[in-house]
Design a protein around this nucleic acid. Structure first.
Lengths: 158, 158
DNA sequence: CTGTAAATGATAATCATTACCATTGTAAGG
DNA sequence: CCTTACAATGGTAATGATTATCATTTACAG
């Protein structure tokens, strides 16, 4: 019952099975790649490369397909930082440890994950979410908050 | 001094000139296309088509180029709703009339612009923005807030 | 252990966006 | 008003991420 992090029991097996998906070596390898670099914003190609170390047989197509189902299931969040390729990260619910939002430099595309002010935000988001679900009859599953601006380095670099 | 909406004076001429850009028929046509359908989320192709009615000579390349400078200048906001093409809308600052956020149905990709709860959000965002700018030395120019979920129609359609 | 549908991977196709380059148009300065 | 420099343009080709196709392999229910 809620071990925090898993030992032998693979937490995501149940999730996949529950949605009618099979447990395969590819999917395992891809989820492991996420957990190996939980702090980064991975592109499909990043994952493809990361996965090849342990399992060279996995094709790029499978990576894309797996990412799609993980996103649909809500286990992974798909992000767009405006550099022409999608980025993925393990989803963390509001309130959960490691939940963060993004600060994007529009000049150099640098991304900063911030967790500051998250508590205030979360409180407001909960209220907003509740109001929106009721008014528009939406089942809200996630949110995206990003601030755009010019970072320190780009500012001084003129 | 602040006529609300312009008569003969073209409000955006100064903005372009101020950033070193020239006033051209293409740019005028593209901005008019935005104002003609200020309520929609236009793709580059939407704008290309819309512009062709009045000015058939404008190429798709110019549309993309113009969109890029408008986004850089902050006059237009570039959005990604996950359907593979970028969407654009006239930027409205927080607090300004028509400022809104998006509610995205992950099933059917329908977008709802909502303005509810915006006042509360804006108040929080102002604080967050201030805190973030100070801590990370960012000049924050804009923000993006989107909620994702399943809409009424898709829910009942099972 | 077997049958069946899901999953896979190599390859080709798609399609939004960008690069290129010769030509045209804006607007500053005379 | 005319000239001139260089920004802006548009057609076309190139790019590159993502998706479709299809024959083969694999998970797993019975």
């Amino acid at each position: 019952m809620g071990r925090g992090h898993c030992g032998q029991d693979i937490w995501w097996h149940g999730k996949l099975r529950g949605c009618g998906y099979r447990i395969t070596a590819s999917r395992e390898a891809i989820l492991e790649a996420f957990m190996r670099s939980a702090d980064r914003h991975l592109s499909a190609e990043d994952i493809y490369i990361s996965v090849h170390n342990a399992n060279p047989g996995i094709g790029l197509t499978t990576v894309y397909r797996t990412l799609e189902i993980l996103v649909d299931m809500g286990m992974v969040f798909k992000l767009d930082f405006g550099d022409g390729r999608a980025r993925y990260e393990l989803a963390t619910a509001a309130g959960q440890a490691n939940h963060h939002h993004h600060l994007v430099c529009t000049r150099c595309k640098r991304i900063i994950d911030y967790t500051d002010f998250i508590d205030d935000e979360v409180e407001l988001l909960k209220r907003t979410e509740k109001g929106l679900s009721e008014k528009y009859k939406f089942d809200i599953t996630n949110h995206l908050i990003q601030f755009y601006g010019v970072c320190d380095t780009c500012k001084t670099a003129k």
